[in-house]
Design a protein around this nucleic acid. Structure first.
Lengths: 221, 221
DNA sequence: ACCTGAACACCGTTCAAGT
DNA sequence: ACCTGAACACCGTTCAAGT
């Protein structure tokens, strides 16, 4: 067979098969990928630019699937929660794909909407202009890190080697997807609460700092 | 030469050379690593269990270097800041190494102290027991994500394609290491402020929730 | 115990050849 | 335009041989 009248492959088909392959615990390798598609390895190169091209195709599939229109929210908090929830689901459902994307520069589509929605929400919340972008990046970095947390084993610490308060807490800890979701929810709650506090602080004027002025105010790294 | 009277290699030597190799922008490959060490590839296997073993050796080097004793802090906030700063420096100084560690299960030494220090600090702060571990994981996930942020290119968005508030903010944004440090500082400030708010909320009793009770309280994922 | 060189299976990529 | 099989350079790993 050469040049079938209806194409066997496409970026989309390759991307989906690659996601399946990786998410089922295998390495991203072209040989197993081609076998899974019933095709020879060199055929892939007609649709995709090598292994990195496959990674891009994987991302395109996920973006189409996850970056859907989101209903407008009433408050800034909800706007943030809805937008981040979407990004989070994409990350958390496919942590192994996420890991691969680290190795390739991504020309991020979808990031545009993420950034502008969050910009408007934080602006509406009353956050000072010069803190908006870094705050968005905090949210993004956290979602990212929390999703990758899903790849780490459940028991980083064996409770035998611990003592004190920590030892008493470890046995009660959730595991797997439940723990992972807990971490995400907790983090988003904390960050949003932190933003609220920061907004209040900025509104009440910089002349009444709530903390020791030598310590607070960040960004003098 | 075979069996020299003073060993040419050791886990430490291999780990350090591998960190240099990776941090200078190369892939982690045994052939270049061996060449850099003036040794044949198969020699590495006498000290380290293959490529994954090299990654473990890299981590051991970093832990020895970064996980140093930390002076006791007065307040819980400072305790957290000092401990996290250490972990962060290790991550942020070696993002490429960090990325490699994702692919290998790490039997985390050093994590023990990190967890117990933060446990005690959060306990001292007055955070409810059942929120302590997930809060620690939030801090860890964030540090992790913020460090990996250093690997992403400076301009995810070209300012030509944006509009509105976002477009006006983009040109003023810091880049590179400065931006990266900003994100870390901002995030830690927000999370600590969030913890403070949560502690206050828990102290004042669950009967006076500060937010819409249908929305707050997280963790019903 | 520690280093070497050769051998092995496997990988990603290229390319001329087929329709 | 799309698929194939062969060829190529390279990778990680193993192992018998040397001291």
């Amino acid at each position: 067979m050469a040049r079938p009248r209806t194409a066997l492959l496409s970026r989309d088909i390759i991307g989906r098969a690659a996601i399946e392959l990786v998410e089922s615990g295998h390495e991203l390798q072209l040989v197993p990928l081609a076998k899974r598609l019933g095709v020879s390895v060199s055929s892939l190169y007609h649709h995709v630019d090598g292994r990195d091209g496959v990674i891009h195709a994987m991302r395109e599939v996920l973006v189409v699937e996850y970056v859907t229109p989101v209903p407008a929210a009433d408050g800034w908090e909800d706007a943030i929660r809805r937008e981040v929830e979407l990004m989070w689901r994409m990350y958390a459902d496919h942590p192994r794909v996420l890991q691969l994307m680290l190795t390739v520069v991504i020309d991020e589509p979808g990031a545009l909407r993420f950034y502008s929605t969050l910009t408007d929400a934080l602006d509406r919340a009353g956050l000072p202009d010069d803190e908006i972008l870094s705050t968005i990046e905090v949210i993004d970095a956290f979602s990212f890190g929390a999703a990758l947390d899903a790849l780490s084993p459940d028991t980083i610490l064996q409770s035998e080697r611990t003592s004190g308060k920590l030892a008493s807490l470890l046995p009660r800890r959730a595991t797997g997807a439940v723990r992972n979701r807990e971490v995400f929810d907790r983090g988003l709650d904390l960050i949003i609460a932190g933003i609220s506090a920061r907004v209040r602080e900025a509104r009440d004027g910089p002349k009444s700092p709530s903390r020791d002025p030598g310590r607070q105010g960040g960004l003098r790294g």
